[in-house]
């Protein structure tokens, strides 16, 4: 796993298209004319299963379970609309942390990209959970992908 992970599938497709010459031109102009927030992973957010979202994000690369990712979530969430989440990891060279829900209508919840100097010892936010389900956290380091999951019992769903 020394090769870079295939993060961006559309870029791959673009590369493939550029080999075939002229066909690449309209694709390229569309790609580069997009605004700064083009990095928002549209296809992954459009996925309707957690597996589909992860496939869109990582192109099917292997994701290893890790006990070095600590997910703090309530065992029971009374209100699925506001569920506090904290992620900590002591994995090194972290590039991004992705949060995916098992059963939300939009399984991908968020991707957090870490710049130089950003620490991975306390990342906190509040999420919505549609029903009792697992929350999956994937940590991408410079070398590979790791994941952990945690089950939350939800009393009132938070996605409708």
């Amino acid at each position: 796993m020394t090769k870079r992970l295939p993060v961006n599938r559309s870029r791959r497709r673009l590369l493939a298209a550029s080999v075939s010459g002229v066909a690449a031109l309209p694709v390229a102009s569309w790609l580069f004319s997009r605004p700064v927030y083009a990095a928002w992973p549209r296809a992954a957010f459009a996925a309707r299963t957690a597996e589909g979202a992860l496939r869109e994000l990582y192109g099917g690369a292997a994701i290893d379970p890790s006990d070095r990712i600590l997910i703090t979530l309530p065992d029971v969430a009374e209100d699925g609309a506001v569920v506090p989440l904290t992620v900590r990891t002591d994995l090194e060279r972290v590039q991004s942390i992705v949060v995916v829900s098992e059963k939300n209508p939009v399984p991908l919840i968020a991707r957090f990209d870490f710049g130089d100097g950003a620490l991975t010892d306390t990342l906190a936010t509040r999420i919505k959970l549609a029903e009792s389900e697992h929350v999956i956290v994937v940590v991408q380091t410079a070398e590979r992908l790791y994941s952990a999951r945690r089950y939350v019992e939800v009393l009132i769903g938070g996605c409708t």
């Binding site: 990095a39 928002w40 992973p41 957010f45 609309a81 506001v82 569920v83 949060v99 829900s101 939300n104 939009v106 399984p107 991908l108 919840i109 968020a110 991707r111 957090f112 990209d113 870490f114 710049g115 950003a118 620490l119 306390t122 990342l123 906190a124 936010t125 509040r126 999420i127 919505k128 938070g158 996605c159």
Partner: peptide
């Protein structure tokens, strides 16, 4: 830090790092 968010982040979002 930069974040890509969908609809699964709670209303009036909180971010701490």
């Amino acid at each position: 830090m930069s974040c890509a968010w969908g609809t699964g982040i709670a209303r009036n979002p909180l971010l701490s790092f």
